[in-house]
Design a protein around this nucleic acid. Sequence first.
DNA 1: CTAACTTATGGAACATGTTCGACAAGTCTG
DNA 2: CAGACTTGTCGAACATGTTCCATAAGTTAG
Lengths: 221, 221
Amino acid sequence: MTQDATTGRMGRPARTSRDEILRAARIVIDRDGWQKLTIRALGKELGVGAATIYHHVRDREDLLIQLLVEHAGRSIDVSLPEEPEARILAAAVAIRDTLAALPWATEVLATDGFLARLGGRAVQMVEAIVATAIAAGASQEDAVALFRNIWYLTVGEIQVRARTDSRPEARDARASRFADLDAEATPALASIGEQWVAWAAHDTYADGVASIIAGTLRRSG
Amino acid sequence: MTQDATTGRMGRPARTSRDEILRAARIVIDRDGWQKLTIRALGKELGVGAATIYHHVRDREDLLIQLLVEHAGRSIDVSLPEEPEARILAAAVAIRDTLAALPWATEVLATDGFLARLGGRAVQMVEAIVATAIAAGASQEDAVALFRNIWYLTVGEIQVRARTDSRPEARDARASRFADLDAEATPALASIGEQWVAWAAHDTYADGVASIIAGTLRRSG
DNA sequence: CTAACTTATGGAACATGTTCGACAAGTCTG
DNA sequence: CAGACTTGTCGAACATGTTCCATAAGTTAG
């Protein structure tokens, strides 16, 4: 990785910069789709060897996160209502919607502290959730727990959704699988049967978050 | 993939069976750790070429799921309390604990309908959640929504936990990142500061699930 | 101006999941 | 029993992320 610029500059001058790499990555994504964003393709776009990229970016994950930093920093909606539960919910939904719209986020978001790495408005959303919970009577620790449970739900929802509908065979297999269930051993599932698939398409994320909020605030306040 | 055995058997007899592959996979995992379970290593263990494995197993994901089927089918705890909310919570915790104990589950669980593929007691836990919710007054659709939100939370929790502590640099980076936050823009996060890391180590999964349960049942019943 | 130093670059190599095509090894039909 | 047919096996190949190392291209000290 490139050294810090505080010391006197030395060594061979770089032909490539981190910014150029990110710009090229965006071009490739816009033109070919993000699935085509491989290190080698990126190198070709820049007219540079693949190995060179590793001098400016730690690894592919680092690259994807850098790419998210801008989008997440800019495009998160910031108009939050005042009422505490609605405010927290709105912040969570904003985070979810933003990340779900950036498909490559799925590959890298499953980390504690991920939103902190995104910075900008992503962190403001975290602040909104935590600060609102505290203002509503939760302890700091409960506020952190609230955020983390919301974050887990968010990660799970995004990942399951992304994987489920990027995998046609999964959907098909699922449909028949619930029909095969034994009505003796699993009567409730059997009676739901094929409807599961239709209901599973509904968006229940907001309900889930609302429940977590209500549950946490009730316990605390 | 091997043909069904209903038609008269024909063709070259198989030297390898799906069961043998699974047995060998378990041996490799027990001996070398699951990270060493590569297709080629598995082939070597069986004295067979890597490509051969693909005649008995669709892909690596299929292999990992088959491996989970046994563990999840056998080892899930089944003594559930009677009281509805406690019963649903216990089922969720049993699923979480079982999957969290099988590290390679992380790679493949982010799918809708995943537990159905595991069969056995995994499905019984789903049945328990859905049936209990319905018995407690939820509609079928709300029961499905309840299960799905629990599932999302479970997937998120397992993945975040697994990735966070398999990645030492993530933990370190996180510690400093929260200290760097601007006290003007994010006062709540700044005042929590370093405590976040300690609190993030606490297990809040059960609280989250309990909130989702309470929230859903209150809306319905 | 030369030599030492430092950083950037990229070709080669490695591990991995996966696919392809040729070949092997049986069964079945006539 | 011979040829057709079917299925299993595996070497080779491909794409990908990543690391190593030799080399290039500057800056700076003498």
